[in-house]
């Protein structure tokens, strides 16, 4: 309980010194629904990424640890080009103007979805930012990470590679 409170408080406060608590494995949990729009107003759901490993990152433009990990997410996207990994950043409970103001400064090549009313944040039970979910190719939640990390190295990369390795070989 004390550890939980500490982690939650540190994450809620978005301390600049905050470090990720580590990837929590989940027993192939069914993923909640994702019902969001991208910056062009196009509706998006998890079905759009079916067959791929999905890294779903909940973030906000006011959250320093969220912004700190963004460059590593972009490097991961570049390094994984051509591989079945979808990186999806879901902005939690902000306006499109707030999100676009940040994206004008930071170019990201992966889709950014909007959750202006926080409904996805509530459905996924996200209480701290950033929180990231790794889904396997069958759309099940396999890992949860509360807090920031460097996505293109270390444990994060190992976990992603392990999920990519699980994918059945596609018939040619």
């Amino acid at each position: 309980m004390k550890r939980l409170l500490t982690v939650v408080a540190i994450s809620l406060f978005c301390s600049a010194a905050g470090q990720a608590a580590g990837f929590e494995p989940r027993a192939k949990t069914p993923a909640p629904a994702l019902q969001a729009q991208d910056l062009n107003g196009v509706p998006r759901t998890l079905a759009d990424y079916r067959g791929k490993v999905v890294l779903l990152n909940f973030w906000a433009s006011w959250c320093p640890p969220c912004l700190r990990e963004m460059p590593s997410l972009e490097r991961l996207r570049v390094n994984m080009a051509g591989r079945p990994l979808a990186i999806v950043a879901l902005d939690s409970a902000e306006t499109p103007e707030d999100v676009n103001a940040y994206l004008a400064r930071m170019k990201l090549g992966f889709p950014v979805l909007l959750d202006p009313d926080g409904s996805n944040t509530q459905r996924w039970k996200v209480f701290a930012l950033p929180t990231s979910f790794l889904l396997d190719a069958e759309g099940r939640v396999r890992y949860v990470l509360t807090g920031p990390t460097e996505w293109d190295e270390g444990e994060a990369l190992r976990v992603i590679e392990s999920l990519l390795a699980e994918r059945p070989v596609q018939p040619k």
Binding site: L5, P32, K125, F127, A128, V144
Partner: peptide, 15 residues
């Protein structure tokens, strides 16, 4: 001011 009254607040679980 932004009261924290959680005893549990884990992703994917009810608070």
């Amino acid at each position: 001011m932004y009261p924290n009254l959680y005893t549990q607040a884990e992703a994917l679980a009810e608070p």
